[in-house]
Nucleic acid binder design. Structure first.
Lengths: 236, 236
DNA sequence: CGTTATATTGAGATAGATCAACCTGGGTGG
DNA sequence: CCACCCAGGTTGATCTATCTCAATATAACG
């Protein structure tokens, strides 16, 4: 667990507060205060952080690693809603209302999180309106993303959906390299399929087609290089 | 346009401030202050309130009537994202960030709205943290709704989607009557179809099936009576 | 280097899209 | 007050893209 509320420079660096966007407007003193409210935890790859339906009492901020938020659908599949990474937070629905978690959260890799109790975070937001604003901004960004997703899922054109998800990943995880944008995929073919409401076979086929057309190149199962972003975006 | 910033009781009643959830924690004095910041407008049925891509400078709160928020998809169809009604607000994405409107908003019936300039609203949120909280709550509710929608759209089972949308409308617009929950549909078959990513024919067929099974009854084109909510919800 | 999980590819079944014809309800004018 | 009109809705027949099931290939990892 490491140190929980120590404010020394050494520990700070391990703490979320410094690198988390929602605290970006805070000065050193405020950061120290925030740090004292934080409880840190580590999760191993594959560990469940939150179970759908559970009541959580804290806002969870990701310090390092990646987390997938998903639901088990009535059809028995696992529908991924978000991939959270460093600096993202979740549990926002429990922050103000007393809602149970609407999804499961599972560490995709070894992950460090910081939790702040809802009451403490509410207190902070009361004192620092900028913090509220940052949270709202992020909520709006999520709305924008979900609205886009819904639009592309309403689409009959399946290629479009596959392209969209690749563009989305590229924007979020892409690393520019000489050959093109390199994406470290946050999920398996099956994960992608469930993310956009298709079967893994269809995703596979569509991606193979994109490769044949030299729009993308697949490197192993977890990496994709986008060779021609323009053509990929053409119908998104 | 009526009176814009008058604070007399008479005008108050026409103003949003009193009946809008986000201002529900405000006392009389605060309401008066809010009222003075509001600019009221009326729109006729079918009028466009906001055009996708336009920069809006104000938060829009619906005082009376209904508004559909939609986008034109790349396939040339109209995808409805939200149906807003009395007390709902939109333009939240322009409130803090300088984002252009992500959707069109059109009055579904004669509609009265109140607008508050973003700067003024920000000021209010700074002063009254409760207001921020109310806005956040609503944003969270929208996230919940969109997450649900995405899950149901990821579903291969189409009946499920039709049932879901009927349950959603029932919860939002349902009026209990002896025969069952009566829903005044906010959109045409085509609208519903686009809302859940199907064709109007398929929606028609699925609804006819539901009627054959005595789960719903259709009255004309704009009204549906839910006769057996349990069976409708069975697989949602 | 072998074993297991994951991804690809192929062939066939099927649900929903598409195209087309027909019906209905609610509004209008004679 | 009735007949007519027309947008929107329903129903039917086909077509096609994706799902499903199955076999095979490839990657990941100890």
């Amino acid at each position: 667990m490491g140190c929980n509320s120590c404010a020394c420079e050494n520990c700070h660096n391990k703490m979320c507060s410094k690198r988390v966007p929602i605290f970006s407007s805070f000065n050193q003193e405020e950061i120290t205060r925030v740090s004292s409210l934080i409880v840190r935890r580590e999760y191993k790859k594959g560990e469940l952080i939150i179970l759908e339906g559970a009541g959580i009492e804290s806002l969870v901020i990701i310090n390092s690693g990646r987390v997938k938020a998903y639901r088990n659908t009535s059809e028995g599949r696992e529908h991924i809603l978000y991939i959270f990474s460093e600096g993202d937070f979740f549990g926002e629905k429990n922050l103000l209302q007393n809602k149970a978690a609407t999804y499961n959260a599972e560490a995709l890799e070894d992950t460090g999180i910081c939790t702040i109790h809802r009451k403490a975070f509410q207190e902070l937001m009361r004192e620092y309106p900028e913090l509220s604003f940052k949270v709202m901004e992020e909520l709006c960004n999520r709305l924008v993303r979900l609205e886009k997703t819904i639009e592309s899922m309403g689409t009959r054109n399946v290629e479009l959906r596959v392209n969209s998800v690749l563009v989305e990943f590229a924007e979020k995880y892409g690393r520019a390299e000489p050959r093109g944008l390199v994406i470290e995929l946050p999920m398996s073919r099956e994960g992608i399929a469930n993310y956009i409401g298709l079967t893994r076979e269809t995703v596979s086929r569509k991606m193979s087609l994109l490769q044949e057309e030299h729009i993308i190149e697949m490197v192993g199962n977890k990496k994709v290089i986008i060779l021609d972003m323009n053509r990929l975006k053409e119908n998104v």
